[in-house]
Design a protein around this nucleic acid. Structure first.
Length: 198
DNA sequence: ATGACGATTTACT
DNA sequence: GTAAATCGTCATA
């Protein structure tokens, strides 16, 4: 498989969000274990004009600094006091846009993902479909935390994306983004993308 | 120094 | 359907 290069990421977030569907997110653990999943759901956060984005209004804080950095790096943030979410930085300098990875279809390292997700959850509920079916779930399954904020997906060794089969436009379902009810007119915009049939 | 809140998940009624 | 869990971050002072 071939790793996606910088040019793939350096596009507007909505275009990147659609292009990421079907690509394969790869996480290499400290011990060399490879975890991978096909990206099946994304959300685009467009930049300073997007009231749902962390960069809205030009906000540039320690937390969201990665959004202002180079395309093709990770933006990982901690939310609700207990969860991490993973984004892929889009666009380029001065354009703080990113794509939130919302769901994967697990492909490699399922046992390890299950172990990461375990905790109090009964084994029966750790079917493959439950491992990466949400932004915080996939971060947990792939052991992605603040340590991977700013990680370079183009050159880095621990997190990157490999070329998969792109999802044709006709197979992409658009919907409003989740959890952004505060974003006024930006709440309704169709910036969430899902591969039909998962 | 303080306080309100969040790009979620889970369990429970 | 509703609510709890749980704390870093940021705006305000």
């Amino acid at each position: 498989m071939k790793r996606l290069k910088h040019a793939f990421y350096a596009r507007d977030a909505a275009t990147l969000a659609r292009a990421l569907l079907g690509q394969v997110l790869v996480r290499v653990l400290e011990d060399g274990t490879r975890l991978a999943g096909r990206i099946i759901e994304t959300e685009a956060y467009l930049g300073v004009e997007d009231k749902a984005a962390h960069s809205y209004g030009g906000r540039h804080t320690p937390r969201n600094a990665a959004m202002w950095g180079p395309a093709g790096h990770a933006y990982v943030y901690f939310i609700y006091g207990m969860h991490y979410c993973v984004n892929v930085v889009a666009e380029g300098p001065g354009r703080p846009a990113a794509v939130l990875l919302r769901a994967l279809e697990p492909l490699e390292g399922l046992e390890r993902m299950r172990a990461h997700r375990a905790g109090k959850i009964p084994a029966e509920r750790l079917r493959p479909a439950d491992l990466c079916s949400g932004p915080a779930k996939l971060a947990q399954a792939l052991a992605i935390d603040r340590g991977l904020d700013h990680a370079d997906l183009v050159e880095g060794a621990s997190l990157f994306i490999e070329r998969g089969a792109p999802v044709p436009p006709a197979e992409i379902i658009s919907a409003p983004r989740v959890g952004v009810d505060y974003a006024e007119e930006w709440t309704r915009k169709l910036l969430r993308f899902r591969s039909r049939g998962g």
